[in-house]
Design a protein around this nucleic acid. Structure first.
Lengths: 211, 211
DNA sequence: AACAAAAGTTTCCAATAGGAAATTTTTGTT
DNA sequence: AACAAAAATTTCCTATTGGAAACTTTTGTT
């Protein structure tokens, strides 16, 4: 549907880089060995220790890390299990995992990035940080009638909603519309069609967080 | 065929002791073959066709699907590439993808689940839903001095913070403390130590979302 | 039912992964 | 620098994978 802030897609795309294989032929370098070594070292493990944890021989681990063999699926499973690796992590690139994880981004009231649409007026928060798990924004709901929507808003993920001011009707595809007032909140699956309509004189304002 | 492949036995053994040994992270059945077959059939491909697409022999594919061999990583890569499979998809269980994705949980103002601590008073929101990607809560910050914290709060994930009322100091391990007022928000990595201290007469109230 | 064609499985063997131990490299200490 | 200890790599060998072709089962047609 058109109303959906397209920035969501953008963010998602960004997040998904490296996930699915490229449509075209080239089998990516996909240096499994390199990744494994990174992971092992990041946990300060020697081959010997990793060997005990995974049940794979030291020599086998060494060969895997040096890309001298193509481990069998069961070997990979043991690796994953033994080192507590998150599978996607294995296949995704360097992953700013060890990126110190010390990021912080402050957004002063009203200083977010504006992103207007016909129905909603979004103010994106924490836009200085990229690769976030969540996308927070403050939204003013201009709509005062459900008719103003051409279709359900629908996208991947889950959403949390908190009403700051005004009152509104929360329409969802599979439930009766429900009226929300300041302080009320909702959590829902975004694949389910959803839409907000202000019922108060002034436009309702909400906090929205998508993940 | 006389013997059952070695690796299969191993897996089974592991599964049996799995309970007493490793409480969590148990290597599940993980029926790679089954998944592959499902995927191939869902695309209406014969082994012959899949063979051409992946570059793997018909016989090899058959054996993989029947769990008679543990494919090497390079074989898995070819599979993934040829059939356009998403790797994590391969490793994850049947995936309760069918989670219908039509969940919704409304929490009225003040009706969340209380969760008091010495320093904060949390009100958990959307507690009727489980398996959420995000955990939202409204928190009243009782603390009025940084000394009341014995140590940094630190945990996995990322956090989004929005100030509803009052003013407070946002302390983080790697940055100067910064004062926040209603409408201000912050987004940060939780592995970095963090703490909130009210600076207004009354306790500050914030919305917190963790993912 | 009988047959033919298509799909899938199994066999057999060459190629390669995985483990134990030997060898080499790296690290740390005097 | 020399040595010892720790870590990583390589060797050597057995067990398993992967492919070609033979074989079996299933499907569809008359």
């Amino acid at each position: 549907m058109s109303e959906e802030p397209h920035f969501l897609k953008e963010e998602k795309d960004k997040l998904e880089i490296g996930r699915s294989a490229n449509s075209d032929a080239t089998l990516e370098p996909l240096q499994l060995g390199k990744r494994v070594r990174e992971i092992r070292l990041s946990q300060n493990l020697t081959l010997e220790e990793a060997s005990k944890l995974t049940g794979l021989a030291r020599s086998t681990l060494s060969k895997i890390e040096n890309e001298q063999i193509s481990p069998t699926f069961s070997a990979v499973s043991k690796l994953v299990q033994g080192l507590g690796i998150d599978i996607p992590q294995l296949f995704s690139q360097p992953k700013s995992k060890s990126s110190a994880g010390g990021r912080r981004d402050i957004t002063r009231s009203g200083e977010g990035t504006p992103h207007p649409t016909p129905t909603y007026e979004h103010e994106l928060l924490a836009t200085q940080l990229t690769s976030k798990k969540m996308i927070p924004f403050k939204t003013t709901v201009h709509t005062h009638s459900f008719n103003e929507f051409t279709d359900w808003v629908r996208h991947d993920g889950e959403e949390f909603l908190y009403v700051l001011s005004g009152s509104l009707l929360f329409y969802t595809e599979f439930y009766e519309p429900i009226e929300l007032f300041p302080g009320d909140s909702a959590y829902y699956d975004c694949e389910m069609g959803h839409a907000l309509v202000s019922t108060s004189e002034e436009d309702a304002v909400v906090i929205w967080v998508t993940a």
